[in-house]
């Protein structure tokens, strides 16, 4: 299906590979993190074998997520810069949520909500990395005063919970908007999908195509 006439390559192979590697690492890091923040869910650390193994692996998985997101940042940041037409999306967020596609919202490769998600993910991973290094007992925690450990644990919890909530929303919206998950698995979306959800992006692609022709 990859080269059918009505398909558009939306996400390249390396980007998809990066995305799904992050999914695996983030799932394991997030579930083990939840197991410590909400001990009622302590069974979640068993995805990594034992609670002790989870404690040992969690920081490395977090760093893997950070590295993956660095690549994502490099690849996607220019699509996620705010533009003036983002305000149209904000003004029409109600019709977006009601799946009302009658209005043209001048949406580029990513809509304003996706851009906010992008920047919030990037900022929370920075907080998680820095606080995580401070509280990493096996290697670094001993070099920091206790008041700093306390703040690091609090910051890590806030950023971790925030990121998990964001990713829950991200997963839901991917399930809700049909064609998105196929897009991230195969890389391809249909032209009508692009026109419907990212009209300006679809137009730009069309213009580019006719330029070439």
């Amino acid at each position: 299906m990859a080269h059918k006439q009505d398909q558009i390559l939306r996400t390249k192979f390396t980007e998809r590979l990066c995305h799904w590697s992050i999914v695996v690492c983030f799932f394991l890091a997030a579930t083990s993190g939840i197991s410590w923040f909400f001990p009622t869910f302590s069974w979640m650390s068993n995805f990594l074998g034992t609670p002790q193994m989870a404690r040992a692996l969690h920081p490395f998985l977090g760093i893997a997520v950070f590295v993956g997101l660095c690549y994502m940042f490099k690849r996607f940041v220019h699509h996620n810069m705010p533009v003036r037409s983002d305000s149209i999306w904000f003004r029409n967020v109600k019709s977006v949520l009601l799946a009302d596609h009658s209005k043209k919202l001048r949406i580029g490769k990513y809509n304003a909500g996706q851009k906010i998600l992008f920047w919030l993910i990037m900022s929370s991973i920075v907080v998680l990395l820095l606080s995580g290094l401070v509280m990493w007992r096996a290697y670094f925690a001993e070099f920091f005063p206790i008041w700093m450990l306390r703040l690091a644990i609090l910051a890590h919890s806030v950023a971790g919970i925030g990121l998990i909530l964001l990713i829950m929303g991200h997963i839901y919206l991917a399930i809700w908007v049909r064609g998105s998950i196929t897009g991230m698995v195969t890389g391809y979306v249909s032209k009508s999908w692009a026109r419907q959800h990212h009209d300006r992006w679809a137009e730009e692609l069309k213009a580019k195509e006719s330029e070439k022709a």
Binding site: A56, A141, I146
Partner: peptide, 8 residues
């Protein structure tokens, strides 16, 4: 598990 939260 050796997380060190008790220290904090």
């Amino acid at each position: 598990i050796g997380c060190g939260y008790c220290v904090a």
